[in-house]
Write a protein that binds this DNA or RNA. Structure first.
Lengths: 221, 221
DNA sequence: CCTGCCACAATTGTCAACAATTTCGTCGAT
DNA sequence: ATCGACGAAATTGTTGACAATTGTGGCAGG
C-alpha cells in the first residue's frame, strides 16, 4: 500500500504519514488502523504507532474505541455541517482581526502563494493544491493576533482536511476557489474590510456543498 | 503530596488525578512532572503516565518539551487575555444559540445547580465550587446545538481551570459570581435573550481580572 | 434450521528492561 | 576567580514480551 517511507522514527513522522494517507484517501473512512500492521509498515514499535494514533485522534482524523482499535473518522453530513458552522464563526473573527493595511511584504507573499496555488490547480496536482491552500489560509490565521484563535482555526482546518478533498476533486469548484483567493487578495490590496470578511467566510462553504452532494443519496447516516 | 489514590489503573484515571492536582494548586505552574515519580505514586507503569501527560498536554494544562519532560503550564498575562478573548467569542455563540424558552425541566435543573453552587460558595469548599460551576456552565455548552462548539467550549473551559482558581480564592469575586448565575437563571426564566447573552459573556471576565491583579507586580512575563 | 455457549484467534492494554539524551557537579586551565 | 570541558547522575525515548479484552467460528441443544 501507498507510501513505504524507509524508516520513520519519531512519533510525529508516523502521525504525519498517516495523516497524509487519510487526507489523500489512501485510507478510507471506517477503515481500521491495526497497530501491528502499522508498526511493521513503519519499521517501528507499536508504542510509537499508539502515540501517533493518539495525536491523530486529537486532530479528529481517527476515532479510538477502547479495546477495539482505531478507525478512520467517517463524518456524517450533520457533523460536517456543524464543523463548517463553527469554522464560519472562527473565520469571521479571523477576518475581522486581520490587520489592514497588511504588514509590509505580506500582500506580495499572499500573491505569490496565490500564483503557486493557481498553477497547482492548473496541473491538477492534489498534493501541491493542498499544500498551497494550507499555506494561504494559515497566513490569515496567524495574523489574527490571538494565539488561541490561531490554534483553533488550524485545528479545525486539519479536521476538515478530508472534507476539502471533495472540493479538490472537482475542477469547477477548484477553479472557483482560485477566483475567490484572488478576490481575497484584491480586497486586502484595497483595504476593503467588508469585502474581505464576506469573501473569506463564504469561501469556506463550497467544500461543504461538494461534500453534501457527494453524500446526497447515502442510506446510512 | 496530595491524594494517594489506592491503585488507579487506566490512563484516564491518572490524567484526571493529575488534572485535579493542577487545578487545585497541589502542583504549581512550572513544576516538573517526572514520569518515574508519578508512576510510583500511582502504582502503574511509566507508559500510562506518559499517555496521561499527552492527554494533559492536549488539554493545555502541561507543556511537554522534547527530551526534557513536562512542566505545569504557566500562563503569561498575554496568554490568559487571549484565552479569555476567545472564550468570549465562543460564549457569545453559545448564548445566542441557547434555546429560549428552554427545554422542559432545564430551568429547574439550572436553579438546583445554582442553589448547590451558592451553598458550596457559602461553605467555601473549593472542590464543590469547582464541580458545581463546571456543571452549571456545561449545561449551556451542551445546548448550543453544535457538537464542535460544545467540544471547543469545554476544552477552553478546562484550559482556563487554573485561572478560575484565582476567582475561587476571593470571596468577593465568588459572591459576585453567584449573583451573576442568578441573573442568568432569571434571564432564562424571562426568555430575555439580550440580557442572557450580555450577562453570560460578561460573567467570564472577573476571573481574568482576578488573575491579572494577582500577576500585577511580576517581573518576568 | 435457528439459537446460545464455548474455545480459539486477533487485537489492544500493560509491564519491566534497555538505549539515548539532557542536566548538573567537578575539575583543570587561563 | 571565571570559564569551559569532561563525566556521572537523572530523566526521557524506545523496544520486546506478556496479560487482558474483544471478535469469530464451530458445535451441541432446542
Amino acid at each position: 500500500m501507498g507510501s513505504e517511507e524507509t524508516a520513520a522514527r519519531s512519533v510525529d513522522q508516523v502521525a504525519d504519514a498517516l495523516r497524509e494517507d487519510i487526507v489523500f484517501g489512501r485510507l478510507r473512512p471506517r477503515e481500521r488502523l491495526i497497530e501491528d500492521e502499522l508498526s511493521e509498515r513503519f519499521g517501528t514499535s507499536r508504542h510509537v504507532v499508539r502515540a501517533a494514533m493518539a495525536t491523530l485522534e486529537q486532530l479528529g482524523l481517527v476515532v479510538k474505541r477502547p479495546n477495539r482499535g482505531c478507525i478512520v473518522k467517517d463524518f456524517t453530513v450533520a457533523e460536517v455541517t456543524e464543523l463548517y458552522d463553527l469554522r464560519g464563526v472562527l473565520q469571521l473573527e479571523v477576518a475581522r482581526r486581520f490587520p489592514l493595511p497588511p504588514p509590509p511584504g505580506l500582500e506580495d507573499e499572499l500573491r505569490e502563494l496565490q500564483q503557486r496555488y493557481a498553477q497547482a490547480v492548473a496541473d491538477f496536482d492534489f498534493r501541491r493544491i493542498e499544500a498551497c491552500d494550507d499555506a494561504f489560509h494559515k497566513v490569515f490565521f496567524r495574523h489574527c493576533g490571538n494565539r488561541y484563535i490561531v490554534e483553533m482555526a488550524e485545528l479545525l482546518w486539519q479536521r476538515s482536511a478530508t472534507i476539502r478533498t471533495f472540493a479538490y476533486g472537482n475542477r469547477e469548484v477548484l477553479a472557483q476557489s482560485v477566483v475567490e483567493h484572488d478576490q481575497i487578495c484584491d480586497a486586502i490590496g484595497k483595504c476593503d474590510r467588508e469585502r474581505f470578511v464576506d469573501v473569506s467566510v463564504k469561501h469556506l462553504f463550497p467544500a461543504l456543498v461538494a461534500f453534501k452532494e457527494a453524500h446526497a443519496g447515502r442510506w446510512s447516516e
